[in-house]
Every structure is written in C-alpha cells, then in structure tokens.
Design a protein around this nucleic acid. Sequence first.
DNA 1: ATCTGTGAAGCACTTCACAGCG
DNA 2: CGCTGTGAAGTGCTTCACAGAT
Lengths: 209, 209
Amino acid sequence: MEIPPVVIDRLPLYTRALSALESEAREVVSSQELGTRLGVTPAQIRKDLSYFGRFGKQGRGYNVHKLLDELQRILGLDRQWRMALVGVGKLGRAILGYEGFTPQGFRIVQAFDTDPKRVGEQLNGLTVKSADELESALSANPVDVGIVAVPAEIAQSVINTLVKCGVRAILNYAPIAAQVPRGVHLKRIEPVLALQSMTYYLKNSRGPA
Amino acid sequence: MEIPPVVIDRLPLYTRALSALESEAREVVSSQELGTRLGVTPAQIRKDLSYFGRFGKQGRGYNVHKLLDELQRILGLDRQWRMALVGVGKLGRAILGYEGFTPQGFRIVQAFDTDPKRVGEQLNGLTVKSADELESALSANPVDVGIVAVPAEIAQSVINTLVKCGVRAILNYAPIAAQVPRGVHLKRIEPVLALQSMTYYLKNSRGPA
DNA sequence: ATCTGTGAAGCACTTCACAGCG
DNA sequence: CGCTGTGAAGTGCTTCACAGAT
C-alpha cells in the first residue's frame, strides 16, 4: 500500500510522545490523550496507525511500549544509521559536536572538506578527508545519510557527488534550493527558511495575542 | 483572502532562487525555468503568485528584480526582525555564532539561560541574562521571535513563558513535541526528526538507486 | 509564438460518524 | 460504556487546459 508522505512525517512525533509516556511509566494511552499532547486530532492518529496495522484495544487504547516498538520498527529506528558530513567549517563542527544524534542511533562516521587546510585535522575522533576522496571513501565505507554543511556556492555539486556515490538521504544545511533526482530524499534543515515563512504571519497580525 | 499555508512555506524558496538569478544578472524568468530550478511545477508557481497579484507579463515571464522585491515585501523580509535566544549551552552558542541570520535581516538581541553559572557571561556582544528575567527583559525590550535551545525537560515551560511574554513566533531546537496556543507559530528545527522520517524510505527501498 | 493568470477538474489528506470489540 | 478501526464525506491543495495579453 502507498502511505501518504505526511503520515510518515508524523510518525517520529508519535514515537517522541510515546518515549515520554514510557519514561513516565504509563502503560496505556488513548488516541485522545496522545492527540492532546501533540496537537493532533485523535481521528488522525488512529487513521495514521491504521495504515500499518491494528495496534490498539477497543475500550482501552494503545499499549505504550508495544506501540513505540512497532513504530520504531516501521521507521527503521531499531538499527544504527551511518552518516557522512561534508563541510567542517563553523557549522560542520557544531553538527559534529551535536549530542542528539547518537542516542537515536545516528552516527557520523566520516567527515570531508574541500579546504586543504582542514584536511587531515582530527575532530571528534574522525580524520577530515578531502572532498576529492568522497567517491573512493564512500565506496570503501558506505553511509546511509549525507549531511551537507558547505557554502551555498558548492552545495549543489557536493549533493550531486553524494547522489552519484549512492547516498539516498541528504540533510541539507546550505541555504540553497537544491535539486535531487527522484528516489533521493532531501530535507532542508535551515533556520532562515523557517523564519522567513513565520514573518509573513507576524507581519499580518499586529497587536498583542 | 485566506492563503493556503503551504503557499507561504514555498515563497521563501522562490525568493532564494530569485536572489540567485539576480546575482547572475538575469532580468526575466519564466515559471517554467523557476520551476525546473526548484523542483516545483510551473503551474504551481503561477497559482501561488496569483494569490498576491499579477506580477508577470504574458509571453515574457517575470521580471526577476521586481518579483523578488514583491515577495520580500509580502513575507516581511524588507525589515529587521529581533530575536531572543533561550539556552546558551553548546547548541545555543552555535546558534549565536551562526552567520546566516544577519544577512537576511534576523538578529539575536538577547540571550538567556537557566544555569546561574552562565548568567553574566559575554557571548557575541551579548550579556547572558537569567531566564527568570525573561518577562521583565522582554517587556522592556520586545522581540519578534524566540529561539529555544534548552534541554527537552524544560523546553515546554520556556515556550510557555515566551508565549506569555507575547512572542508569537518560535524556533524550537529542543527534541520535544511542544504545544503552543492558536495564533502562535512554532517551527521545529530539529535534525533528528528529519532523519527519522527519511529512514522509513531508506528501509523500504533496498539496493542501489 | 510564448507565457501568464485562472476557473474547473482531479487528487490527497483530514475529519466525521458509527459499527463492533473489550 | 469507552475507545478503536474505517468507509464515506468533506476540505484543501495541485494540476489541467485554455483564454487572453504581448
């Protein structure tokens, strides 16, 4: 069956709320309560879950632990994912130092840069390699995800190289509207883009509250 | 007229592509070409723009400079936006040091933390204030946007305080599914969330390309 | 001839509302 | 009686297709 992409985007939110409930030692939760916590309607949660199976018990709700487990399996969060970082400037270093990846099973296992001055540097236990070596390094040691943290001017060409190396999921921090072929997944992780759409609403609703 | 939210989310992409075209000294662009650059259909671009006016010339296309100007005005990007950062740990410092905000008219003008050890510190020209002072500091010196970079456990309460202080746009870096009242805009800027939905597709399409 | 602007058609997602299980 | 799972209805967004302007 073909699952609507928006549904897939909501599942990680559900896992997040379920983790919180689990650490509160809650055993059961209803779509109603989950919905209130997340700002999503209960009907939507039930419909979303129904694409994958029947996880609830009528009259009771969902077993927190079991549902969390199912969702993690569905999303592929029950294993480790290997990532390559391209660009170890200011932003790239911050990404390398980010502690939120590892506990969720995401690990940066290779780092690249185009600047020869940075090649060879040791950062967080990784030796920075030249971006010219991308192809050989990734074929010797493949990754699942590419993280792009290079200047806008070279971002598209870096993305093209990653795609050529078989990377099918890319996290793009560069401020460009990058193109990828069908079948490659790209997510823009870029604060300015998010800000620029919020300003529209700020501008159009003056006064407090 | 009520503009579909998805349309507003696309406008910043259009401004980005138009800026690129402008720096290439292109005078005119068609919806066809803009669409190819962005991976959006030409019809969608024309429809989106038609919500706001008639900016094109039949048989020719759109004047790059004029359209960019119009979109920036529509989105409110023709002025400065003031932001407050809450949380100056590792992540918060990286955000303070990010150079992508200023050229786009976004400026962090206040920084807060709950940890007394960090209060008083000088960072990027700002003196870190105690989170207890949020209310008084923001009423003396209001901001348009709040940036939340605190641990998950206290993120919701920080967000509540920001909302109480009249902040109506929030960029949330904390890994929680935060709640905000209607009328407040919140964007999740969180790499793990983006990764966790991409893994679904990776898991479900084995083999190269 | 080319490319916009736009009603109308088509598609995708959300919500409703209720049968049925615990 | 509460709450899930789900067809059907409703809503919102996208694409089509063409009249009209240059």
